[in-house]
Design a protein around this nucleic acid. Structure first.
Lengths: 148, 148
DNA sequence: TTGTATAACTTGATTAGTCAACTGATGGAT
DNA sequence: ATCCATCAGTTGACTAATCAAGTTATACAA
């Protein structure tokens, strides 16, 4: 039995191995701020786009309604966010605690994330990578799943 | 508050959003074979490199020892694999059931995975993407986490 | 032969996510 | 006023993973 040969499959494997590798490293890195990388991601989206509803947030982080509900329960229990019922919607915003953690964690994590690319590629190559990924991502959002 | 501006962070976000998006689509696609994409991934590694030990397999799919143990319990319960104690090691191999499913599932899934890239990029661009990702991945494997 | 060291694997507690069925809030039609 | 549709969020059952502590199997030394 030989390994995947089609180019697309090879890209796929690299992508998922790298993503899981860099996610694990990020988790280790963020431990010093008492955050996981999923939590950091959600908190940053709220910081940038908030206040917003759970649906809007779920959409931003590519997670289901149920997934965001559970995540927010944990974040609320830790005192990072508050939710208040506002018409039909629950509006989410950061607490002072979260704001002050992010003030330190954000620059650190941004530098850490960037270092994966900056240390391996030059500016031009990073731009190319970003462009190619953006196109592939955009395409995937309107992709149809072939029938049986 | 403005969004991430550093190039590396922008790449990181695209990467993780695309990975989660394409993973979800793969899960829907693979449902017709009664597989999840994590299961497909593990079964394919066994098919290509097997028979192998749990440690070796864990390494191939970038998962911890505990993670692979739990996954294999599920796969064994479904009748996709067998493990036999062999010295200190448990040697894993596919059952006929799994072989016959993969015979159909593999070409289908390979084509599906590839289509994400083939539909959005030309041959040249796919090669570039593969090359850039490989370099970034290789670098990440020897990356040190900066101190506190 | 009885420890003891060690490598390979398992397991409990937790995070993170999925789907599908359910609950709660609101607004409109009768 | 009452019933109903609908949108937002929650929840139960499950997959998938992590870490750290606990097992099991084997080899080797006293």
């Amino acid at each position: 039995m030989r390994a995947n040969n089609r180019l697309g499959s090879m890209i796929w494997v690299r992508l998922s191995r790298f993503t899981s590798q860099s996610n694990q490293l990020s988790n280790v890195f963020l431990k010093r701020f008492d955050l996981t990388s999923a939590q950091f991601d959600v908190l940053m989206q709220i910081r940038i786009y908030g206040p917003l509803s759970q649906m809007e947030l779920a959409d931003k982080v590519t997670v289901t309604q149920g997934g965001i509900s559970r995540m927010l329960v944990r974040l609320e229990k830790e005192g990072y966010i508050v939710r208040k019922q506002d018409w039909k919607t629950k509006t989410i915003s950061l607490t002072a605690k979260a704001e002050s953690i992010l003030e330190r964690a954000y620059p650190a994590q941004e530098a850490f994330q960037s270092s994966f690319f900056e240390e391996a590629l030059n500016e031009e190559e990073q731009k190319t990578l970003h462009d190619l990924l953006s196109r592939v991502h955009r395409h995937s959002l309107k992709k149809e799943i072939p029938l049986e």
